[in-house]
Amino acid sequence: MATDTQFGSASEDAIVSAGDEGPRERLLLWIDDHLKWLLTLPAVLVLFSLTFVPLLRALEISLHNYIPTGRRFVGIGNYVDLLSNGDFHTSLWVTFKFVVAAVGVEFLLGFAIALLLNKKIKLRGLWQTLILIPMILSPTVIGLIWRLLYAPSGLLDFIIGQPLLGQNVGWISEPQFALISVILTDIWQWTPLVVLVMFAGLQSVPDHIREAAIMDGASRRQRFLHITLPYLKSLIVLVLIIRVVDALRVFAKVYILTRGGPGSSTNVISMQMYRVAFRFSNYGEAAAMAVSLLVVVLILAMSFVKIAGVEF
């Protein structure tokens, strides 16, 4: 306090050095000091209750077994059971295939389209708008649109199945095609996001850096590899994290297109959770899966950032 008053203006001195100010002044001072916290408190509370409370609740549920007469504490029993649960393992494998294929194609395709858009093509604005449409539709709507497209004797059978194979493909009814069809739908929906992010990134590469590389004698390919890619590294990591995390949680699309079937061919992990929780009422096991998924997502995201050496 002594050092504060030394540099303070006369009026500040008066407030701070008056050791015997009344409770009203003390309250005002306290509010003044803590106003920033008070103002953000409501938002913090809402966010906290929307994220941490359900999380803690899930954690709690995952430590119990639910039986018709109530619930029983089983510790990590549910987690131990998951280790030997074949359905769970299958759903992990399905999810893995889904994520790798969908995000892989989305990224490569999206980046390629962004590179095309970045050239001075005609009607760029129009293309940009058209390309973004799938992204703004809700997953449920997308699921319904594609269910119609995939339906036996639907549009896709009409233009592909029947002319080429002479029969319906069974896009979502045949186990060997169902996952691919779900993946295709995801690609259709999310490639635009990659386009959007990568296009913005490409536009942000400063002209003078690009031109410096030209003057330094770099070929088009060298400029892409040595300048553009490293420049976009953190954006690439960002878009991959967003897509991987989101793809790991895919639900609405699968639910509407296939309900996880046929068999377990499209039974991704969140579909499996849904089945376990709401068909078999095994809330404890479902919650244990959810918590495990969260841990996996966290580890993946952190290692992405680590591997890429990116700081956000």
């Binding site: 003078h208 850096i209 410096a212 330094d216 490293p230």
Partner: peptide, 27 residues
């Protein structure tokens, strides 16, 4: 022809010696 830009136009993800020797790298 070599050019020095007003904004320096250094490659942000390369260190000093990599920047300086980039014209040789592409060669």
């Amino acid at each position: 022809i070599a050019m020095v830009f007003q904004q320096f136009a250094l490659y942000p993800h390369m260190n000093v010696w990599q920047n300086i020797s980039y014209p040789l790298k592409v060669d």
